[in-house]
């Protein structure tokens, strides 16, 4: 790994050099790992669907590590390039642009260009947030052509071998305006991520946060109850991530009720009445 800067106590590396070197904790819910491996083998782009905080990003990190490990070669492994999409994300943000530097201009590759070149997993997080013209850009990359046109330079870039495009999106809160175009959608296979069931979630919370299983199971129970409120006051159920946060706080010695209050109740909603209801669920589950 080429570390550009390491003297100041922080690590700074080029995006294409980011690899997952240690196994991230990931508990497979069903066959998603095999599915992804096969897709990777066959160079089929993958769409990860699911609510926030259920482990989509963790999954892709895990796969990056796993595929890397499979290659048995640390140098030519699978780097992971993540792009957080937002509504002002433009084509040049992805592909690259000329920058003025002194008397001249200098071309800088965008993340997708870099991923194409090095054969990385290019992960477009929350892709619906990006503007439509941006999503169209990736079309040639996603079919059999695996080409990235770099218009400004008049170049065509062929994707390196290990390259795969992965996108994630949350069908829950996107409005009709922010749906994926069918032409985009149908270039991906889709893996659905749901909330893990109570036992799985218990394991995840316990592993991630360090709390013992009994508390983890109470947290998982809480999650199950709160998720019942989805569409009835809550836009989105509580994510496993938040539960892990709660678990971590409890692990640090914060009382469970208080931890859930800050990590679950207040994080989920600003509606006072809904807050109050969830709080009551919390106080029903956790003793003082």
């Amino acid at each position: 790994m080429t570390t550009i800067e390491q003297s100041q106590g922080f690590k700074q590396l080029a995006v294409e050099d980011f690899r997952i070197s240690e196994e991230p904790f990931y508990l497979p819910i069903s066959d998603e790992v095999e599915l992804f491996e096969s897709a990777y083998e066959q160079k089929i782009p993958v769409l990860l669907k699911g609510p926030t905080g259920v482990g989509k990003t963790r999954f892709i990190e895990y796969m990056s590590w796993k595929l890397h490990k499979n290659l048995q070669d640390s140098e030519s492994g699978v780097p992971l390039i993540t792009v957080a999409c937002h509504e002002d994300l433009t084509a040049s943000d992805l592909v690259g642009r000329y920058l003025l530097e002194g008397e001249e201009t200098r071309w800088v590759d965008g993340p997708i260009t870099r991923a194409t070149k090095v054969g990385a997993i290019c992960y477009l997080d929350e892709v619906v947030e990006a503007r439509k013209d941006t999503t169209v850009l990736i079309h040639p990359l996603t079919d059999y052509r695996r080409l990235l046109p770099v218009e400004k330079r008049g170049e065509l870039l062929e994707a390196a071998d290990g390259f795969i495009l992965v996108m994630s999106y949350n069908p829950g809160y996107q409005s009709a305006l922010k749906d994926l175009k069918h032409s985009t959608r149908q270039r991906f296979i889709a893996i659905e991520f749901g909330y893990p069931d109570r036992d799985q979630e218990t394991e995840i919370i316990s592993k991630e946060s360090g709390v013992d299983l009994s508390i983890a199971s109470e947290l998982a129970k809480l999650a199950e109850k709160v998720r019942n409120l989805k569409e009835h006051g809550l836009g989105e159920g509580v994510s496993t991530r938040l539960l892990v946060y709660a678990g971590k706080l409890i692990h640090q010695g914060i009382s469970p009720r208080r931890a859930c209050e800050v990590a679950v109740v207040w994080a989920l909603t600003d509606d006072l009445e809904v807050q109050r209801s969830i709080e009551e669920v919390v106080t029903s589950i956790f003793e003082e």
């Binding site: 109850k225 709160v226 409120l229 009835h232």
Partner: peptide, 15 residues
């Protein structure tokens, strides 16, 4: 009542 309604919904998962 409206708070308890939501509470009951959360617990039972029913309407």
């Amino acid at each position: 009542s409206s708070m308890l309604r939501m509470y009951a919904k959360a617990l039972s998962g029913e309407q």
